[in-house]
Amino acid sequence: MKAEVAILMSTYNGLKYLKDQINSILAQDYKEWDLYIRDDVSSDDTISILRDYEKKYTNIHIVENNNTNLGAKKSFLELTRVVNAKYYMFSDQDDFWLPQKVSATLKLMKSAERKGSNDIPVLVHTNYRIVDSKLNELRTPPASFKDYTDLSSLAINNSITGCTMMINDTLKQMIGNVNAEEVGMHDWWFGLIASCFGIVEYLPQVTILYRQHEGNVVGANTGLADSGSGSKVGRILRGIKKNMRYYRKELRHGSMTAQQVHYFQEYYAKLLTVDKEKELGVLYKGITGGPVAGLTLIRSLKPQSRNKEVKWVMYIVLITK
């Protein structure tokens, strides 16, 4: 009998923290879940650890990998393709889930589904606490942090962290056979689907300890201030330079941001409303065009960032290309 919630985990050489993560999932106060793990052809003892858990627990399953290394993005997309459930969560191999993570996220998911019409794609994501390799706190985003998940803001600034995320099956069915090469990251793509066609909900409660270490595929966003040492002014100046470099790279033709917007517009062309089609057109021209197109994007869509100073760096780049 399949559980209501499928937790999807992709592993790769996860020996160091893997047991902590799986044990934190086993300690959840909500028990109606199955954990599906696809190992991305690890060269350490990760697969041995997974086999031990699979033998011991009937709700932990190793997914066939065909001896193929896909990388994190493709591996998670493959898991969504082969696993079926009512709801899906996504687990990294090196974090630590707090006991109410599944139950709190699921409660908000069901509330969001009741607000929407039948069969609407819904994505729920939560707050997190950034910790070091030993789970010591480094930073926690404020509970009051504004969550900008309108389509244009999300297309430029992904504010959805995959390891905090739950999607419903309606959203999962909309993923289809997406070309992973055209997608920035799985959580980013899922967020665009929910923003364009359904509901994105944010839970300010911390549900996960998001471990930062030398092996992270994608680290936590530290906002404007650089996370290094030195005075606050110095860190802010470094942060401005860092964000300026990022937007100079991404707000142009040929970037992953531009590529993903264009692909999204093509992939879901038959489902887009006239307004969404127009919005994506303005967005793509603003990203790939010159200052006039950038200014039109700002005036028409007013894309936001979680950090208002970062937003102004983004605007400066858009009008000075």
Rank of each mutant, 00 (worst) to 15 (best):
D29E: 11
E279F: 03
I47E: 00
K249L: 11
L224M: 15
I120Y: 01
I25E: 00
F90M: 03
I175W: 08
R252V: 08
Q93I: 04
K134M: 06
E32T: 06
E64D: 15
K242H: 12
A220Y: 09
Y315G: 11
N168A: 07
G254N: 14
L98I: 11
Y128R: 15
L123K: 01
K232W: 11
E214W: 09
G176H: 12
G219I: 10
S42Y: 00
L251R: 00
I47N: 03
L192W: 04
Q212K: 12
N67K: 06
Y246D: 05
R235P: 09
G116S: 15
T161K: 05
E277A: 15
E4M: 15
S91T: 08
I130F: 02
I60L: 13
F96R: 10
S152T: 09
E277D: 13
S305I: 00
T161Q: 11
L209I: 05
I319E: 04
M9W: 10
A104W: 02
D150Y: 09
S144E: 15
I25V: 08
Y202P: 06
V102H: 07
T222K: 07
T296H: 14
K31H: 05
D150H: 00
L151D: 03
V122C: 09
A194K: 02
V82R: 14
H262T: 11
R139Q: 01
Y17W: 14
S300N: 14
Q265V: 03
S42W: 03
R81P: 05
V317G: 02
Y247T: 10
N65D: 15
S195G: 12
V102W: 06
D52E: 14
Y315V: 09
Y263E: 13
S111M: 08
Y12E: 07
V183G: 06
N177Q: 15
I319G: 07
V292Q: 11
D119S: 15
Y53M: 03
M109Q: 10
L271V: 05
I7D: 02
V5R: 07
E182P: 00
K278P: 00
G254C: 14
V282G: 01
S227F: 06
G176M: 13
P142F: 13
R299N: 08
Y246S: 02
T149Y: 00
D150A: 01
A155K: 03
N67G: 09
A143V: 12
G162A: 13
I37Q: 01
A293N: 04
V41E: 04
M89C: 04
M174C: 06
S153I: 15
D169N: 12
S103R: 09
A220E: 07
A269F: 03
G176T: 11
K74T: 12
R211Y: 12
D94L: 08
D29F: 01
